[in-house]
């Protein structure tokens, strides 16, 4: 067995150079590892191949066809599915609704998450209670969140309508009017996201070294100046990470939409994933739904790539 990968050490090597050489190599890797590699990696590759790689290619393939009602390709149409989608006002409306939803969710989640984290990071009596409460929505699954908020937004008996009644405000039909329905879905999603976002940002804030604040306070920085010139730059990598995760999550939203509005009213909350579901499994247009899937995948891949690029470039301080 050819055991050594590293070349035999030359005599009379400067010692520091020898050490750095060894470090750069890291672990000694052996050439006879093929059997192990197969055993260790095989199961994962099989699963990923069957349920990630193959369906990716299959979706691409299907998106170029018309299909019958069980999803078998019938007529090759080339890019016509895509052209049809991108020129249809219904799909454009769905893209637009998704954009509004995603931007609303990401912006509100980050701003509120940062506010909560900033509030909770200062030492005060009883702050531990607030920290626990702020992270609580992390334990909430999508259908529980949907049910809680469905009740809050429900007509006449819901919390908002009752408060509105009390204050003699005009009644808002939250889930049956396009604008308010979008607002309601965004609010619910943000609430559901907050626990996770809070925990991540809170952790990042705690890791900012205290002397940086002390130094800036002595150098004459006010609290708001500190926030924008010390806190934000220090946690910007985490902020970026959080925003990408939230953004990708928002693009993939399905459960909340399904339970609260089912894409309505009047397709106002018919987001991209929900359309895939409707076109494929309710209408049986698998070819068109596949094209929609590809568009969705491309968008999400772009944002994920962006995140990788950023994380790669970023060096730990």
């Amino acid at each position: 067995m050819q055991a050594e990968v590293t070349p035999a050490p030359k005599p009379k090597v400067d010692q520091s150079a020898a050490i750095s050489h060894k470090r750069a190599k890291g672990y000694n890797l052996h050439a006879g590892d093929k059997y192990y590699a197969f055993a260790f990696l095989g199961p994962s590759l099989l699963v990923l191949g069957t349920f990630v790689f193959y369906p990716m290619l299959r979706t691409l393939y299907l998106s170029l066809f018309l299909t019958n009602n069980v999803g078998r390709p019938t007529v090759f149409v080339g890019l016509k599915n895509y052209i049809g989608l991108l020129t249809s006002s219904a799909y454009q409306a769905s893209l637009q609704a998704t954009a509004i939803y995603v931007i609303g969710v990401v912006a509100l989640t980050l701003i509120l998450g940062l506010l909560l984290a900033q509030l909770a990071v200062k030492k005060l009596a009883g702050i531990q209670w607030f920290r626990t409460i702020f992270s609580a929505t992390m334990g909430v699954s999508v259908s529980v969140a949907a049910i809680f908020w469905l009740f809050i937004f429900s007509p006449s008996i819901g919390l908002f309508d009752q408060i509105g009644n009390l204050l003699h405000l005009p009644i808002v039909a939250w889930l049956t009017q396009p604008g308010p329905a979008m607002t309601a879905v965004i609010i619910s999603t943000v609430w559901m996201n907050l626990g996770f976002t809070f925990l991540i940002l809170f952790g990042a804030l705690q890791m900012v070294p205290q002397p940086l604040y002390e130094a800036s306070a002595i150098e004459g920085a006010s609290e708001s100046y500190q926030f924008f010139h010390v806190t934000i730059p220090m946690i910007s990598p985490t902020l970026f990470f959080t925003s990408t995760v939230t953004l990708i999550g928002a693009f993939k939203s399905f459960g909340l939409i399904d339970l609260m509005t089912a894409g309505g009213p009047n397709n106002a909350t018919n987001l991209m994933v929900y359309r895939v579901y409707q076109d494929a499994f309710l209408s049986g247009n698998y070819g068109i739904a596949s094209a929609e899937s590809v568009i969705l995948a491309v968008i999400i891949a772009l944002f994920t790539l962006l995140q990788f690029k950023f994380l790669e470039k970023r060096v730990t301080y």
Partner: peptide, 29 residues
């Protein structure tokens, strides 16, 4: 408050801002 005491401080950990250049660190205050 610290900023009104007309003094400066050098910290054990130096408390330099990692995202700023030397010039900007010196100019911070």
């Amino acid at each position: 408050p610290p900023k009104d005491r007309q003094l400066t401080m050098v910290f054990q950990s130096y408390a330099l801002f990692p995202f700023l250049s030397v010039t900007d660190n010196v100019a911070f205050g």
